[in-house]
Amino acid sequence: MAILVTGGAGYIGSHTVVELVQSGFEVVIVDNFMNSNTEVINRISEITGKEIKFYNIDLLDKQGLSKVFSDNRIEAVIHFAGLKAVGESVEKPLYYYHNNITGSLILSEVMKEFGVKKMVFSSSATVYGTAETVPLKEDTPLGATNPYGWSKLMLEQIFSDLYTSDNEWSVALLRYFNPVGAHETGLIGENPSGIPNNLTPYITQVAVGKLDKLRVFGNDYNTKDGTGVRDYIHVVDLAKGHLKALDKVLTNNIVDAYNLGTGEGYSVLDIVKTFEKVTGVTIPYEVTDRRPGDIGVSYADPDKARQELGWVAEHSLEDMLRDSWNWQQKNKNGYE
C-alpha cells in the first residue's frame, strides 16, 4: 500500500516525502511541476537511497489521476497541491478558486471511486483571517482576507461536509504557519520562481547576491517594531507533523483541524537580525507599502497537536535560518 502525495515535488511536499520514505512508507508523487522541478525527485532519491515513483499530472486531469489510482494501491493521500501566493490570489481570484477548489474536488471524487477515504490536507493559518486575539487556537472564529485563504477555508468546509455524509472518511486539516529552513543536506529547500513571496528565501537571495535588497512590506503594524509578526516553523518539523497526522487518520475516522506552529511570534526585523547573527551577512532592506491581504500578527497555539498527535516543533529559529542559508549557498540558482 502506498501514500499518494499531491504536490510532492514542492517545498513542503518534498520534505514530507523524505520523512515518509525514511519511515518505511511506499510513496507515489503527483505533481504538475508548475511551481516545482523534476530535479527534486532526483534529490529525494539521493537523500533516501530509494527510487521515487511520480506522475506529471495536474489534479484537474481526472482521467490521468484515475490512472494513478488504477496503477497503485493507494492507502491514503497527503494533499499539498495548490497555488499559494497571497498577492497573486488577490490579482487572480478565479484562477485560484478554480485550481485549488476544483482540483481538490476532482481528487476527492477519484478517491471516493477507488475507496480511498483517508486524507491529510494542507490548510493554512490564513483561515483565521484578521483574528484579534493571539495565539490562534483551532476554535478561533474563522475567516479570510484573500482568495488563497478563502480557498483553504472553503476546502476545510467541503471536507467536513464529506465526513458528515460518510463517516468512513477521515481528514486531518493541518493549519500551518510559516515554513522556513531546508533539509540538513542542503539538497532540497525552498525554490521560488521569480521574486520570492516568502520572507526567508527573499533574505537568502539578497545574501547570496541574486537580489540587491529586501523589501519589508509595511512598518506601521501594531507590533514592537512596526513590522509583521509571524510564527516560523522548520519545514522538517512541519513534515514530521504530516506523518503524525497520517497516523491519526489511518487509525481513526475523524475530521479535525490542527495548528502546526511553534507558538512563538517573530517580526520581520527579528528574522533579519537573527539571520545576520547566524550567518554574519548583512541584509540591506527598504520599507515599502503593505501587501493587500496581509495582517499584522499571527502565531499559533500548537497545544492540540501536541496532545492529540504527539507532535512538537523541535528546531529553533537559528536552526531554520542556518539551514535556509545552507540550501541557498549550495543552490544559488535553485534546482536549475
Rank of each mutant, 00 (worst) to 15 (best):
G181S: 03
I158N: 09
N252W: 11
V235F: 05
L260Y: 01
S165G: 15
K67F: 10
S267V: 08
T251A: 10
A300G: 10
K67P: 04
N35Q: 14
F217H: 15
V120N: 03
I203R: 03
G82C: 09
Q205K: 15
D71A: 13
M111W: 00
E276P: 04
G334T: 03
I203S: 05
S23T: 10
S124N: 04
Y97A: 12
I283K: 07
T274G: 02
P196D: 07
D289M: 13
E336C: 11
N219S: 15
T6Q: 04
D247V: 00
I52T: 01
G186M: 00
I203P: 03
I57G: 02
G181P: 05
G7E: 01
G189L: 02
N146K: 00
D71W: 06
V272K: 07
A2S: 14
N167D: 14
L269M: 14
K152M: 11
A257I: 07
I295G: 11
D61I: 07
M119V: 13
G24D: 11
I106N: 06
K210H: 11
K248R: 15
I203C: 07
N37I: 04
F69S: 10
K304E: 11
N99L: 04
D58N: 15
N37M: 06
A182I: 09
E46L: 14
D319M: 10
V249E: 10
R306C: 08
K84T: 13
L317H: 01
Y221C: 15
G189R: 05
R306E: 13
V134G: 06
L243H: 06
N99I: 07
K137T: 15
A9T: 08
K277I: 03
K62P: 04
G261Y: 04
T262F: 07
L246K: 02
V208C: 07
N197A: 15
S298E: 12
